[in-house]
Design a protein around this nucleic acid. Structure first.
Lengths: 191, 191
DNA sequence: CTCAGAATGTGTCATTTGACACTGTTTTTT
DNA sequence: AAAAAACAGTGTCAAATGACACATTCTGAG
């Protein structure tokens, strides 16, 4: 269990009993490459924390093209916010791009510890606030970058993703076609 | 003071005493068109709630072009997250695009009520979580839209902004040039 | 009211992108 | 091990965009 222990420790001090409770509610899981974690139009009732491998969260446009909404890297917690909070069906589907090891925290357990354990409630609020505000800042920055800048940013911040995730998925994540991403990579390789 | 009363009420029930405390800490302010609210490289130590008018939060690229980071509409609370949370200087500047009426909550007061008043602490956490998660969802959607789709989305959701904010600012907000936005508007007008 | 400066509308052209078609390479399946 | 499928690389061409130049309209200061 140490993976999640380290994850939570980053956000502040936690008592041994609180940590034990939290860890006891996590369910471990594994996926083989290509396996589905969440089907489209399904409610998402867990928070997922990826220890190893990459997840792919995507949907289809009205014309049938697959659009990548997110690629989840190791050491990251993730869920479909609007589905998890409001219990609406999620728009997209989530599958494993590589073999994946993960832990999940189910919604009833999440709600219960928030209601019953003030220490963990505070911790969860801190984590939520930090993750969300980082995402807002990140999204604002990204929206003002060119595709090339986004690629360079990804290369610096998530080099493992570039190595293990198919080019077409990266291209879609950056908001472009695989051909354009290829031209960018060719240009950068020449320099 | 009703404006902020209605604003807070949207997020849940609040006791009369809690609401009175909150409202008593808000400072009203006004700006004339073009007036500066926040200078670049200044710490942002308040949360601003706009009652009337539009604010413009922007920065300059390395080549001197003005880049719009955000346009704040009436009935919206706003601050520079990374500056308000971590007390770093903000990258951008904020000025009034039109005459503006606003209320502000200063950071010491914000921290004090969070620490001293459990009811308001919970309310603030709820508001923070809702606003942040809505922004994350919004930003994710927007990043997958074309400029034309973003414009149509803005037209539906913030028609007043289109009317009162200069085309060049809207164009920059959407991530394009004023000429391209103009072509889009011409094409839509023809249909 | 008048005039200067700002904002908006429009055409041209070089550059970039997306779509398509195809080849070569790697991975998976049988 | 061979066949099939998926993935990656590349050239061509039409369409979209950004940069520039300039005309027109709007706005605010005096």
């Amino acid at each position: 269990m140490h993976f999640m222990y380290h994850y939570f420790s980053r956000f502040g001090e936690i008592s041994t009993s609180g940590m034990e409770l939290l860890l006891s509610l996590l369910h471990q899981g594994e996926l083989t490459k290509g396996e589905t974690l969440i089907r489209a139009n399904q409610k998402v009732d867990s928070i997922y924390c990826v220890e190893e491998g990459f997840l792919h969260y995507y949907t289809y446009s009205e014309f049938g093209d697959r659009i990548t909404l997110n690629v989840i890297s190791p050491d990251t917690c993730w869920t479909v916010l609007e589905s998890f909070y409001n219990q609406e069906p999620a728009l997209g589907a989530c599958t494993a791009l590589t073999p994946v090891k993960y832990y999940k925290l189910e919604r009833p357990d999440y709600l219960r510890i928030k209601a019953e354990n003030p220490e963990l409630n505070t911790l969860i609020q801190t984590i939520t606030e930090q993750i969300l505000s980082a995402k807002v800042i990140e999204a604002n920055n990204r929206s003002k970058m060119t595709i090339e800048e986004r690629y360079l940013h990804l290369l610096q911040n998530k080099p493992a993703m570039i190595q293990h995730v198919p080019v077409a998925v990266i291209a879609s994540l950056l908001g472009t076609s695989r051909e354009t991403l290829h031209r960018i990579r060719r240009k950068l390789a020449a320099a």
